[in-house]
């Protein structure tokens, strides 16, 4: 099992905007390079991309949570 980490500290969002569906749900398979969340840093939104393909088994953060740099945000089953 591996994890996806943040590259920037800030506030994490699992959907592109409040009304939209999440980028990815737990249990779904994702491709390398796919956006799985946004991190808001000083009012800028930065995409969090998967660095490898696999099944995303679990998110470790909630929508709107604070995240630190290099924090694990999701678990991936390769």
């Amino acid at each position: 099992m591996t994890t996806i980490k943040t590259a920037m500290p800030g506030v994490i969002y699992r959907r592109p905007s409040p009304e939209e569906e999440p980028f990815v749900r737990e249990g779904e398979t994702i491709e390398e390079g796919q956006t799985i969340a946004l991190v808001e840093v000083m009012k800028n939104f930065n995409e969090v991309k998967a660095d490898q393909s696999g099944r995303l088994t679990r998110f470790l953060v909630e929508d709107g949570d604070e995240v630190a740099i290099s924090q694990d945000i999701a678990e991936l089953e390769d």
């Binding site: 920037m8 500290p9 800030g10 506030v11 808001e40 840093v41 000083m42 009012k43 604070e66």
Partner: peptide, 9 residues
């Protein structure tokens, strides 16, 4: 001081 990521720059 720490310049935090939560507010404007």
């Amino acid at each position: 001081d720490t310049i935090s990521p939560f507010y404007d720059s």
